[in-house]
Amino acid sequence: MVFLVISLVTLIAAILSLESRELVYGAVALALSFLGVAAIFILLDALYLAMFQILVYIGSISVLIIFVIMLVRREKWSTIKSGNERIVGIVTALTFFLVIGYVSYNSGLSNIITPNSSIPDFYDIGIQMINDYWLILEVTGLVLAVSVIGALTMAKIERKN
């Protein structure tokens, strides 16, 4: 029941964020749908993940999106194309998700038996990250550092011109 309500709110907010004519409403609806995803994480007993979902997606990403929307002129972006393109888009998305859903429903995913031990907490996540996935962790850190340095360089070049 709770899951149904949360997923309904999430989906409606996600659709609203695409379809609303006022861009700021859309951005706030996007934040609401991120919050719904965090609530689903809480339902799955993954409080740690939910908190980081809120911190990263609502605390920074949706705030940045609203920031950009407020700086950009409204008239340029608010023309929503109607007609054929929208129908094609909806049909493509529906087909894609039906195929993906069919494949994953018929794969072995639906009858995986999880070990009946306690719920993994953030200690386990940390141990796994350091021991098994240390390479991926370091590569991710490297990519982030490179992107920060790249952004700084680009900002300096633009300021010179």
């Binding site: 934040a31 740690y48 908190m51 911190l55 609502i58 609203i66």
Partner: peptide
């Protein structure tokens, strides 16, 4: 278990409200 993170996650909403 993660009660230190929860206030920081909630504070993340405050710029949204200000905006």
């Amino acid at each position: 278990d993660v009660s230190l993170l929860i206030p920081f996650a909630i504070i993340g909403f405050s710029p949204l409200i200000v905006l």
